[in-house]
Design a protein around this nucleic acid. Structure first.
Lengths: 148, 148
DNA sequence: TTATATAGCACTATATCAGTGCGTTTTATC
DNA sequence: GATAAAACGCACTGATATAGTGCTATATAA
């Protein structure tokens, strides 16, 4: 299914708020007062992002989370990768099977390589958008890109 | 989850075979003799693609499926759209809620527009690869595209 | 000491997906 | 005609992943 999980959506929303309040530690409570998002779930997501090193945490009263790096250097792709793994697109991608789950078609699959190309292009899209870009919305939707 | 469904994978595999045997009606049996794919499931997928007008069917002995249009004019995006709907990426995209499922965050969502841009770019990727491209694998993986 | 945070882990309910069962209808061939 | 091979239609089951919550421990400012 070509859809981000709710966890990822909430993660991006939370992170965009951290960008707005750059430097300061922001509590989950504050985020949930600003956006109608389920508190506990957002908390779980931020914990994950903390384990992955995208944010830093501070415990206790007045604690919270803050970006561990400048917003420019954290991409949407990094966030997606941290929360749901690098997008695979297909189940038959070489090197993705450290243990099990090798696609039956693997050896003779006629679409493995083309799909892999799409995957790389898609990943590149995600990597080219940073949290900074997420916040400073450009005026208009861009169109087109280099042809495949 | 950023992954195509098995149905879509099987659909693309089947269609790529139809490209190889262009013009002729190909049975599901033949497809399954060539690729290790579950027959019944592939049959269901081809039925769907037939309803959506991407392939034509012929019943009875010697029957089967054939592309209803030239391979150049059927894109991977069209196939994906037919089998799993246009990718949404996020749950908060305007115009996607003819009835229900409006994202709680909708009105105040800080990431709706950026995600929408990604979605459009991604969709464009899929639309730029045709079944023909799928079959005539280019030599090398392309890199980069226009920046966002 | 208390209130407010994060940390960690497990659990349930729900939705989606992969795959199959089973009977019907169509059509080429013998 | 009879037969075999094929698509058609629809519903069903099991597996997997996701959304969201329960509960407890730990840290820290006031």
């Amino acid at each position: 299914m070509l859809q981000l999980t709710k966890r990822t959506e909430y993660g991006l929303i939370a992170l965009s708020h951290l960008v707005d309040r750059r430097g300061e530690f922001v509590s989950v409570r504050e985020i949930c007062e600003r956006f109608p998002v389920p508190r506990r779930l957002v908390a779980e997501v931020l914990k994950d992002l903390c384990r992955k090193g995208l944010v830093e945490s501070q415990r206790g009263a007045t604690g919270g989370y803050a970006l561990s790096r400048p917003a420019e250097s954290i991409t949407v792709g990094t966030v997606v990768g941290a929360l749901e793994g690098e997008p695979r697109l297909a189940s038959c991608h070489v090197g993705d099977h450290p243990a099990g789950d090798p696609c039956d078609v693997a050896g003779v699959c006629p679409i493995r390589d083309p799909i892999l190309r799409l995957r790389i292009e898609f990943w590149s899209l995600l990597e080219r958008m940073s949290l900074r870009d997420l916040v400073r919305e450009p005026a208009r939707l861009p169109v087109g890109a280099a042809p495949l």
